[in-house]
Design a protein around this nucleic acid. Sequence first.
DNA 1: AGTTGTGTTGAAGA
DNA 2: ATCTTCAACACAAC
Length: 257
Amino acid sequence: MPELPEVETTKKGLEKTKGAFFIDVWTDTPKLIKKPSFSEFKKRIKGKKIKEIRRIGKNIILDLSDDYSLLIHLKMTGSLLYGEVKDKYIHLIFFLNNGSQLALSDVRKFAKVELHKTKELKLDIGPDALKEKLNLKGKKGRIKTVLMDQKTIGGIGNIYSDEILFDSKINPFRKANELNKKELDRLQKSTTKIFKKAVLEKGTSVSDYKTTLGQKGGYAQFLKVYQKDKCPICQTKLKRAKIGGRTAHFCSQCQKL
DNA sequence: AGTTGTGTTGAAGA
DNA sequence: ATCTTCAACACAAC
């Protein structure tokens, strides 16, 4: 579940790698490195210095010396570990000149790692859900799907879309372009509120997600509807429905159509 | 022991 | 164009 708060937490955890140099890299799953080929990747990354850490939506970017950038997407079950790297699902390890290791743990091996020239790195990600205003103009799909569309908004996934819609009392089946001004305003406020809190709590660990120190995020205890049974407001049994292939959790009483 | 569901996203099909 | 389904993979829970 690395969504915005988890990736932001990871980004913060990586700040202390700044200034270090890559000495070597190891993997047992070369296909995690999508470009260039692993052997080329290994050659190029050696000796590069980590200059800056950025997050764009759910992507992590390490800006390196010589105008290169390392792009990492954790997908469903990835986490980046730094320092304490004991974990049975580690498939990629970067060895740094400060004696530490930066490791990718990923049960399902969906994560993506790419090395680009910084100026050739182009991501089609909408306004950041934490820092920028949502813009749903012209979006006709269901609101839950639209919220999770990275080209529209950067950073929202299945868990937080459920939580945001519950907090703003909007039914996930509603069409985005049919929301009134008041509803859009609530949506904006809920998004900001929930993401700020979740970042403070270092994200949500429902199953695999870990911080760079291998710890669980603390937001799970604040979840109200995701994989829950009863509505915390009216006690009605929560509904589950597939929307755009994803399971939506919502309260049919508090989130009326 | 087989089936089902799981956070993401891109590609393929309708 | 826009939407839904599937595949990438491994595991836990039924």
